[in-house]
């Protein structure tokens, strides 16, 4: 199964200090381990929401809203797409991530697309 890991911005909003070299190295080590285990299918980090846009749909109207967006805790800061065999496996992998704060969400990607 494929799962999407969403890293919520939480405390690490745009204003937060950039991660230390040490923290980056830890993260890279973890990411490498995931790649070597054949788990990572895709990954990405998002730029701050101040550079983002939203498009609101209302009937035939479309409204474009500029960032930054207010609900910082819920904003997605980055994502991973993992290939795992179960939700439990995803949880066990995620527990090993070298983070000391923040919330991460695991969601299964449905294999039955809309078509």
């Amino acid at each position: 199964m494929r799962v999407l890991i969403l890293a919520k911005e939480g405390n690490q909003s745009a204003a937060a200090t950039p991660p230390t070299a040490e923290a980056m190295a830890e993260y890279q080590k973890f990411n490498e381990e995931l790649v070597k285990a054949g788990v990572v299918v895709a990954a990405g980090r998002l730029s701050p929401s101040s550079e983002g846009k939203r498009v609101q749909f209302d009937g035939s109207k479309r409204r474009v809203i500029d960032g930054p967006f207010a609900e910082t805790k819920e904003l997605v800061a980055g994502y991973w797409l993992w290939q795992v065999r179960s939700m439990d496996e995803a949880i066990e992998w995620l527990k090993r991530a070298p983070y000391d704060g923040g919330t991460f969400e695991i969601r299964e990607v449905s294999q039955h697309e809309g078509a």
């Binding site: 285990a37 065999r85 179960s86 439990d88 496996e89 949880i91 066990e92 992998w93």
Partner: peptide, 10 residues
């Protein structure tokens, strides 16, 4: 045990 099984898989 489910956690253990997942760890075993890893």
């Amino acid at each position: 045990n489910r956690a253990i099984e997942a760890i075993w898989r890893i």
